[in-house]
């Protein structure tokens, strides 16, 4: 079954300078029990996507078209506010970049972990035990004593693990993790993603993992969705995306990663140009003004070309051979 099926989603914000088309024809699935990575630069619509899923779009934002189907039953774009509240937390939970934003600094960790179980019928003792179990699961040493401590008494890595424990406490079907490892050093980043992988297996949930860090995506995710200027330009399995990128943006993005330059260089590769103004989207391909393989046809909207089943690129030339073979 598919945990989250996003189909042809369009979101517009009304601004003083006219409507801003923040998400355009976004389609992808988060299958059950899989970790799906979302890659894209700031402004590509990742936050809008999260807010659309959680029903938290700002007042000037509207879903014009499309659907977000959760567990095959709930249509999130038209869900009532009260049903949405029932889903947020127990069924769909989130972890953000800054764990201090998720933890209340003046309430002990234990109390926060018990409080968030307010929907559960367990007794106080059982809830406490559940909190201890979760802290042990995220490898917080001396979990029982940790319950009495306050967020500032933990290190950055531990705070993020506590935030993950709280997000997974109610065993949600979907965890949305928005750059959860960005503030951590490489050793803690790796431990945190390994932990996330283990917990995902154990709880059997799906994860939508958002990151700029291509290395982390490659290591953690099963599938990858590449977003650019509010569109999904390519999606596929992690291997398909990293080893055989078919959209020119994906290919260039991977080439730009300094981690791929094994020779030390002072001049890092870039993608020249800027994202077009989303208030005046070009009628054709959104990447055409920066694309190294642009053709006359690109002034018309490109198709979602199927490379193989499940590997899709929104590009006219996606099925033509590339001159560099994809890997830099």
């Amino acid at each position: 079954m598919t945990t989250l099926a996003i189909n042809n989603l369009n979101v517009t914000f009304s601004t003083e300078a006219g409507p801003l088309h923040a998400l355009k024809n976004v389609t992808f699935d988060i299958p059950e029990n899989r970790i799906v990575g979302i890659v894209g630069e700031s402004g590509c619509g990742k936050s809008t996507l999260i807010n659309a899923i959680l029903g938290l779009l700002a007042d000037n934002g509207t879903v014009d078209d499309g659907s977000i189907l959760f567990e095959g039953a709930d249509e999130l774009t038209t869900l009532s506010a009260s049903r949405m509240r029932d889903l947020r937390g127990p069924r769909i939970s989130t972890v953000f970049q800054d764990p201090m934003g998720a933890l209340n600094p003046v309430i002990s960790v234990g109390r926060q972990m018990i409080n968030i179980q307010y929907r559960s019928d367990l007794s106080k003792e059982e809830k406490t035990q559940r909190a201890i179990d979760m802290l042990e699961l995220v490898r917080i040493p001396d979990a029982r004593a940790a319950l009495g401590r306050y967020p500032h008494q933990f290190s950055g890595g531990m705070k993020q693990r506590i935030a993950i424990a709280m997000a997974l406490m109610m065993e949600p079907a979907l965890l949305i993790a928005d750059e959860p490892t960005t503030a951590l050093d490489a050793t803690l980043e790796v431990t945190t993603i390994e932990l996330l992988k283990d917990l995902q297996q154990e709880i059997g949930c799906s994860v939508m993992f958002i990151s700029h860090h291509l290395g982390v995506i490659a290591e953690l995710c099963d599938d990858v969705v590449v977003m650019y200027a509010g569109e999904v330009v390519e999606r596929g399995t992690t291997r398909q995306i990293f080893q055989n990128p078919r959209h020119p943006y994906t290919a260039r993005l991977l080439e730009c990663d300094p981690a791929r330059q094994s020779e030390r260089t002072r001049h890092l590769p870039t993608i020249p140009g800027e994202i077009p103004d989303l208030r005046a989207r070009p009628p054709g391909c959104i990447f055409a003004n920066r694309c190294h393989r642009v053709q006359p046809a690109c002034t018309a909207p490109p198709p979602d070309a199927v490379i193989v089943d499940g590997h899709i690129a929104r590009c006219f030339v996606a099925n033509e051979p590339t001159e560099v073979g994809g890997i830099a």
């Binding site: 040493p141 980043e189 431990t191 490659a218 080893q243 981690a259």
Partner: peptide, 27 residues
């Protein structure tokens, strides 16, 4: 050494030879 060995790389088939650090960052 641990930091450099932990550094994730954008290759899904990379086999990492990592030095894992036990315990937590002290206060």
């Amino acid at each position: 050494a641990a930091l450099l060995s932990a550094n994730p790389e954008p290759d899904p088939d990379k086999v990492h030879d990592r030095i894992t650090l036990p315990a937590e960052v002290p206060s």
